[in-house]
Amino acid sequence: MPEPAAPEKSHSGPVSESPAGGRPDTSASTGVAPGRIGGVATRVASALIGSPAGEPGRGGRLVGPPSADAYAGGWRSRVRLVVDADGRAGVHGYRSTEVITDLRCPQPMAGAMDGIAERTWTPGADLVVAVDGDGMRHLVEVAPAGDERGGQRERRDRGGRAEGSARGGDRRSTAARRAAAHSARTERVVDGTGRAVQYVAERRWELSATGFWQPHYGAAQCYSDVVAEWADAAPGALVWDLYCGVGVFAARLAGQVGVTGFVHGVEFARTAVAEGRAALRDMPWVDLTAERVERWIHEQSGAAPDVVVLDPPRAGAGKDVINALSEHSPRRIVHIGCDPASFARDVGLYRSAGYHPVALRVFDAFPGTHHVECIAAFER
């Protein structure tokens, strides 16, 4: 069976786990499996040539955790499924609108998929499965969005494919599915409370089960640890956390700068900002703002940040954000990239702006799949 769709990272709304098999938001905290690191490194090597990559201040080397063997199965705490025309839950085939209703897969955590295949669901709906930090499963049915074309819902055949579409899909149908995933849709809680509780560094978050959280159960803690180590923000410093989500990184940064410092977090999704503010209400020196990152950066005219952390969606940060960011001349930038291609492009943009990578770690974001996560630190 094809792997369950990797949720595409998007801080602009509910978790968008691309049914056509994109990468998500995820993952794993465990290092790159043997044999895969070379391929990943090759994709970013051209952007890194001439710049050492290793631990800050420890010489140039590509650093990765030792092994992902223990995380090959039962690691996925977030799954998004689709429902075909007959009410059966499944996943889209790779780059296809066909719904495959065989749900056997080793990735989800134990019990996450129990009872789903045996039930009939609303045709065209999505199902979001989330196992939270307390071990509670939340199962939410998200009402059909309906691709609107010419005022009428797109017709689908018995297999769930758009009638007249090629098996491999097309760019228009993929764009329509992604747009629909971000539109406002009615949610029905089937199991659990619909409010997932998560923990990172002994801090508690409560967020919508359909909101974004790293799918690998260990990822948020792992990435948070790396970001905190590499940011190394000084007490009293000003720090920016861009594409901050619910503020997982902002919390760690706030602990470093203390009450004499300040952390600005910027996130487009208003729901995520509200949930982050609730979780960080004991840290008044953290301010989370609901705004587009590129617009917010251009509006800043005050003191320059000492450290900037950014975790953009799969498309990466891009030229406008990186150029605007470089004009503020932060001492260090920590960038989390969830797609090697856009990450390599962003590395090149940093180099053009005078920043060079001083540290790089590659994580096996989705064990058993081709998806990886890259974290790099840059300095001038």
Rank of each mutant, 00 (worst) to 15 (best):
M1Q: 07
A5M: 02
S12M: 13
P14R: 13
S16H: 00
E17T: 04
P19E: 05
A20W: 12
T30V: 14
P34M: 02
G38H: 14
V40H: 11
T42M: 09
A45P: 01
P52F: 04
V63Q: 08
P66V: 09
A68C: 06
A72K: 09
R76Y: 00
V82N: 11
V83T: 03
D84R: 06
R88V: 01
R88C: 11
A89C: 11
G90P: 04
L103A: 06
R104S: 09
M109T: 09
A110M: 05
D126R: 04
G133Q: 06
V140Y: 04
A145C: 13
R153Y: 03
R155N: 01
R167E: 15
G168N: 13
R171P: 04
R171S: 15
R172E: 15
T174S: 14
H182D: 03
A184F: 00
R188N: 07
G192N: 01
V197S: 03
Q198Y: 09
A201C: 00
G218D: 15
A220Y: 06
A220V: 00
G236K: 05
V239I: 01
Y243S: 05
V248A: 12
V248M: 08
L253C: 10
G258P: 08
G265Q: 04
A269L: 02
A272M: 08
E291K: 06
R292F: 12
R295D: 15
W296N: 00
E299A: 15
Q300I: 03
A303Y: 03
V307A: 12
S342Q: 05
F343M: 02
G348T: 09
Y355Q: 10
D364T: 01
